[in-house]
C-alpha cells in the first residue's frame, strides 16, 4: 500500500515535469491551421495544456496530499517546542 502511494506520488510529479517540457510546443511554432474550424492549432494545444494542468493537479491532490498538515496547523502535533511569535 505504502509502495503504491509513493509510486503514484512520483508519477504525478513526473507528469508535472512532463507538462513543463511539453509547454514549449516548438513543432507548430509557425503553423496556422484551424482546429474545429475556428481555433488556431497553437491556441488549441495550449487550451488542452490548461485542461491537462487541471487534471494533473487533480491527481496531485488525490495522490500526493499532505494528510497531517491540518493537525499541525490546529496545534494537535507535539513536535513544536518553540514559543508563539512576537507580532
Amino acid at each position: 500500500m505504502h509502495d503504491s502511494s509513493a509510486r503514484n506520488r512520483r508519477l504525478v510529479w513526473l507528469a508535472v515535469g512532463l507538462l513543463f517540457v511539453l509547454h514549449h510546443d516548438f513543432w507548430w511554432w509557425g503553423t496556422t491551421t484551424l482546429i474545429l474550424g475556428f481555433l488556431p492549432i497553437g491556441l488549441a494545444y495550449h487550451l488542452l495544456f490548461s485542461v491537462a494542468a487541471g487534471c494533473v493537479w487533480f491527481a496531485m491532490v488525490k495522490f500526493a496530499w499532505p494528510s497531517h498538515v491540518e493537525e499541525f496547523a490546529d496545534g494537535k502535533t507535539p513536535d513544536v517546542k518553540a514559543p508563539s511569535p512576537k507580532p
Partner: peptide, 16 residues
Amino acid sequence: RNTINKFFPEALKGLP
C-alpha cells in the same frame, strides 16, 4: 535547532 524544529515539523513532511 529551535528554528528547524519549529518550521520543519514531522507533520509537514507529507509535502515534498
